[in-house]
């Protein structure tokens, strides 16, 4: 059973098609990246998944069926539009929102206290929320997202407003949750975070799915025209099938001619008897793939 199954959802606001026949599945126990540039339709898709909006067409299954009030207690959501009740104390605010997630009063109090200690907020619990810094408020939001031990966590830009120390703490926390079998959907455009954390991803642009699958598969799919070589000695000036050679630190980047595969180059170098320390197919970074996909506007069927 998938944690989330999105099947051909579309949503139009006025004359703008926000989401256009988007489909993807999120498997249990993975960190899934939902990527796309600003205004691509990520937030609308999430809102449809969470039953805040109804789709014009298509359907969504979450935790094995339609959204119900019971299921809401098993979902943690950190929205892009961050918000907390500003005029009450942190402790009251967290307890209230934890109780809305179905925790009993004593349970909520205990969990909130434990989380506040972990996030270094315990000493600030009697302060009004509006008196806290942006980073602290962000941590408070993460507490609300995770306090009820949800099965499914959906987080929109989890690292914005966090310093490197807290960023690392949140990363560790997300991995920890995944290792406990929780499903995490991470919505972001910080590609290096996705590379570091996500197992699979979907990339949406102009409301349409552009890329979808395992991170490693996608990178391989976009690779193939560059090879990184670290020889023990010098490389010959000409290698068949290589259109250009660039120096790169202690090695070389070989730009392959059309129709040439990395395997053919390796075979050629071995046959020439050139001793190699390292031979690597240069996989493009997700950043590069992102820019390439977003600027070329190709659609994945």
């Amino acid at each position: 059973m998938s944690s989330i199954k999105v099947n051909q959802i579309s949503k139009r606001f006025g004359n703008q098609q926000a989401v256009d026949r988007v489909s993807f599945e999120v498997e249990p126990g993975e960190i899934f990246g939902l990527l796309g540039p600003n205004g691509a339709g990520k937030t609308t898709s999430i809102r449809i998944i969470l039953d805040i909006f109804k789709p014009d067409s298509g359907e969504v299954e979450i935790l094995g069926g339609k959204m119900t009030d019971e299921k809401k207690n098993q979902i943690g959501y950190l929205p892009e539009e961050r918000g907390l009740y500003q005029d009450i104390t942190l402790e009251v605010c967290l307890n209230y929102l934890a109780r809305l997630k179905g925790l009993k009063p004593a349970e909520a109090a205990a969990r909130v206290e434990q989380m506040m200690k972990r996030f270094d907020l315990y000493d600030h619990r009697k302060k009004k929320v509006k008196e806290l810094s942006k980073g602290m408020q962000q941590k408070a939001q993460l507490i609300i997202t995770l306090v009820h031990d949800p099965q499914l966590v959906i987080i929109d830009e989890p690292f914005s407003a966090l310093d490197p120390v807290n960023t690392q703490m949140v990363k560790d926390l997300l991995r920890e949750e995944r290792d406990k079998g929780k499903t995490i959907v991470m919505c972001t455009h910080q590609m290096h975070q996705v590379e570091e954390l996500c197992d699979r991803l979907v990339l949406i642009n102009h409301g349409k799915v552009m890329l979808y699958g395992k991170l490693s598969d996608i990178r391989r799919q976009y690779s193939g025209q560059e090879v990184i070589v670290h020889p023990l000695n010098e490389l010959p000036a000409q290698i068949p099938g290589v259109s250009r050679i660039d120096r790169d630190n202690s090695g070389y980047i070989l730009h392959l001619a059309d129709q040439t595969t990395p395997q053919a180059i390796l075979k050629n170098l071995v046959e020439q008897g050139i001793p190699l320390e390292r031979f690597e197919v240069a996989l493009p970074t997700l950043d590069e793939i992102f820019i390439q996909v977003v600027t070329s506007r190709g659609e994945v069927s």
């Binding site: 009030d69 809401k72 009740y85």
Partner: peptide, 17 residues
């Protein structure tokens, strides 16, 4: 209005109807 100004609606709507 406060709910709107504080932008707490999304968290609340994913907790109850």
């Amino acid at each position: 209005v406060e709910e709107k100004e504080n932008r707490t609606m999304e968290v609340v709507l994913t907790s109850l109807s």
